[in-house]
Structures are given as structure tokens and as C-alpha cells.
């Protein structure tokens, strides 16, 4: 897996020709390693990756992978993924048809001078304060990758103690490419 540098700039470093693969897998030990290993050995680049149990049944998880469609033809990536026995369904969502969301958590160093302006940033970006102490504030934003990028830029004016982003999850816009049904 090729992590872009710097690590935090996930979205701003996402290439123009990225695709979002929503991969339904069996919820079994080692499946993530199989998927990640396939990308590594075939030389496909991953820009972000998010894993969680899928909506209906505990036996499946969904892996949302943002892939670099310039590192290899998307068709090859999809077909090779499909050969993994634990991969149940793959849907490819073109960026324009995708509803993409990410979660950003950041702890910012604060003092009496900048606390008010930081609260303005929080308010205007749609973020929320989730923890506060005398010297710092932890804020959260759930939004589009672009909104997370924008907030990250705003936070450059402050001292960021820690910042984490989840990598994106995505669903197709209503009426666009339908997800393939999970077989029983």
C-alpha cells in the first residue's frame, strides 16, 4: 500500500483519476490482509481505505477503497479483486456519482487569544467541539472530503496537536450506479 506524503493530505493528494470501490467482503479473519496484499503485489495504489461491518448481516463487511486508476487499469484492479474468494461483491462508483463522506478529529492548542477565532472556524465549517480542557480543544467534522480539506487549511493558523481522518466512505447518489446485491 502506498501512503501518499504527507500522510495528512489524503484528499488534497488524491489524483484526478481516482475511483471509489465499495467492496463487500466476508467478515472473516485476514480478509483485509488479502485485499491489501493484492494491491501491494499487483502494484495498485490505495489512497484511502475504510472498513466496517455492512448494513445487513454480520457475516459481511464493506471496504471502501479509493484507488488510483492511473497506477493500473481499473478493470484489472476490479477483476483481480473479484478473484479473491472472500470478496462477495464490488461496485465501482465514479467520483461524480458518489456521495463521499469522511470524519476528521483534531485537537488544537488554545489560549485566551485564539479561542474565540477558533470557535468561529468551528461554527462556519459545520464542525463540533467534542472535548475541551484548559489548554486545548478537540473538534470533529463529518463532511465531504473537500470540507475536511478546507477545515484542515483553516487549522493551519493554529497549533494542531493531533489530527486524524478516517478515509472516506461512499454510496452512489440515488439513481446512479446501484450497488450489487449481497447474495444470501
Amino acid at each position: 500500500m502506498n501512503t501518499p506524503e504527507p500522510f495528512l493530505g489524503v484528499t488534497s493528494h488524491t489524483p484526478v483519476r481516482h475511483h471509489i470501490l465499495s467492496v463487500m467482503v466476508e467478515n472473516k479473519a485476514g480478509v483485509l490482509a488479502r485485499v491489501a496484499g493484492l494491491f501491494a503485489r499487483r502494484g495498485f495504489n490505495i489512497y484511502s481505505l475504510a472498513v466496517a461491518p455492512a448494513e445487513t448481516k454480520a457475516r459481511f463487511s464493506r471496504i471502501t477503497i479509493v484507488v488510483d486508476a492511473e497506477s493500473a487499469p481499473l478493470e484489472q484492479i476490479v477483476e483481480q479483486l473479484d478473484k479473491l474468494v472472500n470478496v462477495v461483491a464490488i461496485s465501482d462508483i465514479a467520483p461524480k456519482d458518489a456521495l463521499e463522506r469522511e470524519l476528521l478529529l483534531a485537537t488544537i492548542k488554545t489560549n485566551v487569544d485564539n479561542r474565540t477565532s477558533l470557535l468561529d472556524v468551528v461554527g462556519s465549517s459545520g464542525a463540533a467541539i467534542v472535548d475541551v480542557d484548559a489548554k486545548s480543544v478537540t473538534l470533529m467534522l463529518a463532511g465531504t472530503p473537500a470540507a475536511c480539506d478546507e477545515l484542515e487549511r483553516e487549522l493551519e493558523n493554529y497549533t494542531t496537536l493531533e489530527l486524524h481522518r478516517t478515509g472516506r466512505v461512499a454510496l452512489p447518489r440515488l439513481g446512479k450506479a446501484a450497488l450489487i446485491a449481497i447474495p444470501d
Partner: peptide, 8 residues
């Protein structure tokens, strides 16, 4: 039989 071979 393996469609991953197509266009590889």
C-alpha cells in the same frame, strides 16, 4: 475462464 486475463 479467468476474466482477469482479459486486457491484462
Amino acid at each position: 475462464i479467468d476474466k482477469a486475463e482479459f486486457n491484462k
